[in-house]
Design a protein around this nucleic acid. Structure first.
Lengths: 239, 239
DNA sequence: GATCCAGGTTG
DNA sequence: ACAACCTGGAT
């Protein structure tokens, strides 16, 4: 781990603060989708503040503050290039962690027992990101568990999560960011590749509702705010 | 496109120079795997030089060279953060393009007609990266074409390429970098998920040969140097 | 050691 | 406009 990443607050720290900040300012009748997205945005804002703070710290540590740029250009350029990789990949990893934690947290708030699966999947690489009610159930009772895969944005990466639909009869793919890159073409591809249950942030769902009702017959597509009710309905069937 | 990325030489420019440089220094009996990996490394080296040149250019353009760091810290930090995203993602995109071009180029050198498919796949998102003998054949004669998916490194992204094995009877996954992250666990997962033909750089293949022969029965795993011969054998069967 | 992609660039 | 890249370390 680099100096950069070990100087930044833990993901859970930032999520906790984001939750406190969002709680203080939203109304109690906010939808599940809005709640999740508000936390996500606030956590992102906090992270970027953190990031800039640490970058300034590193620059001051590595370069004499009295020096002129023309004399340290080579060194500054080296730092930029080296930090680029670390900053970008820290963002990636933590962005993903954040999504999983936020979804897990919000579901608990809505009374749904669940456990984030974490990176440690060893043998079972097709495991989901969030297990309902628990990770243990993934092993002991795969037919009685609800398996959620979550991504902030999609790109082509949604394909990586298709296997959960073959391994768990009750699975769903959750797209978290309300500015995620979901398109009609992607929905058609998802349908073709075996994605079976999809939750989209409310705004994205409603903007695609017409197309979905017309052309997507083999995926159950729902608005994110329906997720807690969908889970409860599934759980009552599984009981 | 940012100033950064439009100031860097085109991918094909760098590959061309890399090929010239490598040609001038390798022996004529080098293996296909070594040839590909030498080009890949030289292209990478040239790219990093380019990158640093452009970073220096940007710093000089954005910041007064006479200024002291303590007076421009905020601005330098802003540039670092902003450039991080661009630099890292330019690397990603171009790294991928380079792999596809290099493989395509090397196959042509070995007398095998092929066409890089490019990003434009519109409807057919399960298309491969390199089509033999042509992109046109992907549509017109999917059973008579050889479809290659190529990645520099794997991470979990190899899963994205599994669909080519369902869509093309003659398909192979090619792992290009001789320091790619291939492991025994990944080979087992690939086998489980339906990857059927895999080419690994010679060094990686031989380091895993024992495990492969013992535990990987449902993937045809070959050393990269065998690829041209494998393609010719397939082509003669398809004819 | 598998998975993330606080994601812009590429064609 | 859009799908695919991951010259990839952090988690």
């Amino acid at each position: 781990m680099s100096f950069f990443s070990k100087s930044i607050r833990a993901v859970s720290d930032i999520i906790d603060e984001a939750v406190r900040n969002v709680r203080g300012r939203i109304s109690s009748d906010v939808s599940f989708s809005e709640y999740v997205n508000e936390i996500e945005k606030e956590a992102h804002r906090l992270y970027l503040l953190e990031e800039k703070r640490v970058v300034r710290e590193i620059l001051l540590k590595e370069i004499n503050p009295e020096s002129r740029l023309k004399d340290t250009l080579q060194k500054v350029a080296d730092i930029v290039v080296e930090l680029s990789t670390v900053i970008a990949n820290t963002r990636r990893s933590r962005g993903g962690m954040s999504s999983e934690y936020i979804l897990s947290y919000a579901l608990k708030e809505y009374g749904i027992d669940n456990e984030p699966v974490g990176r440690r999947r060893s043998k079972k690489s097709y495991y989901p990101d969030v297990a309902i009610p628990s990770k243990e159930a993934l092993e002991k009772n795969p037919n009685g568990v609800i398996a959620l895969a979550v991504k902030r944005t999609l790109r082509e990466r949604w394909r990586e999560d298709i296997p959960i639909f073959r391994h768990f009869p009750n699975a769903a793919f959750v797209c978290l960011s309300d500015s995620a890159d979901i398109t009609e073409g992607k929905l058609l591809d998802m349908q073709e590749e075996g994605l079976r249950v999809l939750f989209l942030p409310d705004n994205l769902y409603f903007s695609l509702k017409g197309f979905i009702e017309e052309d997507i017959k083999r995926i159950e597509v729902y608005e994110l705010s329906y997720l807690p009710r969908w889970i409860r309905a599934k759980l009552s069937l599984l009981r």
